[in-house]
């Protein structure tokens, strides 16, 4: 079981992430003999078949990929109003398409950003922009290949909850949120050190 950290405490995960089924006939792009590990910016996330085949739980709080939400938004409007809908953004999806999909991003209690693999650092920019440019104030959650070694950077990039990948100890990861006491540069949480303290 993946363990969740909210703020700096272990917390119960109330949200179920909807993961579209994999049929095996999704287009796989290969390059130089290697299977593509990262989708490029702006590519389609799921096929229509995957979107149509996704099962959406009928009760409880759910995290939906953006294409699933867009395909079902009329049906789910009341659940959005009830605070039961969050969106999980993939790192290759343009942030503008998320922003354009909602009149008010803060109608979402949670936005999650999913990384397929640790080395994908686009989630940092997405988090930063959601906080600083799009004014998102609710829970921003990092999901996917998340370990303690990203926590400090994620926190500074505006995330406030972290779903630690399965098999890793979340309790032991918590101190890493504070690996560095006085970082040099500005981020979502602070101004550059030279504006912060007198040196």
């Amino acid at each position: 079981m993946s363990q969740l950290i909210i703020g700096n405490k272990i917390a119960l995960n109330e949200w179920t992430r909807v993961v579209p089924p994999v049929y095996g006939d999704e287009p796989t792009r290969k390059q130089a003999g290697k299977v593509v590990m990262f989708k490029l910016h702006g590519e389609d996330t799921f096929t229509q078949k995957q979107i149509d085949g996704s099962e959406i739980p009928t009760t409880g709080k759910i995290l939906l990929p953006l294409p699933i939400w867009l395909a079902n938004k009329e049906v789910l409007a009341s659940r959005l109003a009830a605070g039961e809908i969050g969106i999980v953004l993939q790192t290759h999806e343009p942030i503008e398409s998320l922003a354009n999909a909602f009149d008010d991003l803060n109608s979402l209690p949670v936005i999650a950003v999913y990384v397929q693999i640790f080395a994908d650092g686009r989630n940092f920019t997405l988090g930063n922009l959601l906080r600083t440019r799009y004014g998102f104030k609710n829970e921003l959650r990092a999901v996917g290949d998340i370990m303690r070694d990203q926590l400090f950077f994620l926190k500074r990039s505006g995330f406030d909850s972290y779903l630690i990948k399965e098999g890793r100890n979340a309790e032991e990861a918590i101190p890493s949120l504070n690996d560095f006491v006085q970082p040099y540069q500005s981020a979502t949480d602070d101004v550059p050190v030279w504006r912060r303290v007198s040196r």
Partner: peptide
């Protein structure tokens, strides 16, 4: 150098 050291947004380019 200071700005780039542990820059959170650009840690995994």
């Amino acid at each position: 150098r200071q700005w780039s050291t542990f820059h959170p947004e650009f840690a995994l380019l």
